[in-house]
C-alpha cells in the first residue's frame, strides 16, 4: 500500500488516489475551505479531481481561517 504524508503524519492509502479523493478520505467535507500543497507546489482547485497522489508524496491541507475579532 502506498505510504504518503498528510499534514506531516504518515498515512497509508489502498491505491493511488486523486487529491479530491484524499480530501474525502480525510473527512474534509468542504474542499473549498482548504488550499492544497502537494510536494511543495499548490494544486489549483480545478485540478483537485485530476491530480494523483503517489507513493512518498507529501500533501498539506491549509484551511481558510477568516476570524480575528
Amino acid at each position: 500500500m502506498p505510504k504518503i504524508k498528510v499534514n506531516g503524519s504518515p498515512q497509508e492509502i489502498e491505491h493511488s488516489v486523486t487529491v479530491a479523493e484524499l480530501l474525502v478520505l480525510n473527512k474534509v467535507e468542504m474542499p473549498d475551505m482548504v488550499s492544497v500543497q502537494l510536494n511543495g507546489e499548490f494544486v489549483k482547485r480545478e485540478n483537485f479531481g485530476s491530480t494523483v497522489v503517489k507513493e512518498n508524496d507529501e500533501i498539506d491541507f491549509l484551511y481558510f481561517m477568516g476570524g480575528g475579532r
Binding site: 468542504m30 473549498d32 475551505m33 488550499s35 500543497q37 499548490f42 482547485r45 491549509l62 481558510f64 481561517m65 477568516g66 476570524g67 480575528g68 475579532r69
Partner: peptide, 19 residues
C-alpha cells in the same frame, strides 16, 4: 494569495460570531 488564491465562497467558512 500565493497560498489562498481567492476568498472561499460566502458563508462556507464560519465566522467567529457563528462558530
Amino acid at each position: 494569495r500565493c497560498v489562498f488564491q481567492n476568498p472561499p465562497p460566502k458563508n462556507l467558512v464560519p465566522s467567529c460570531a457563528q462558530a
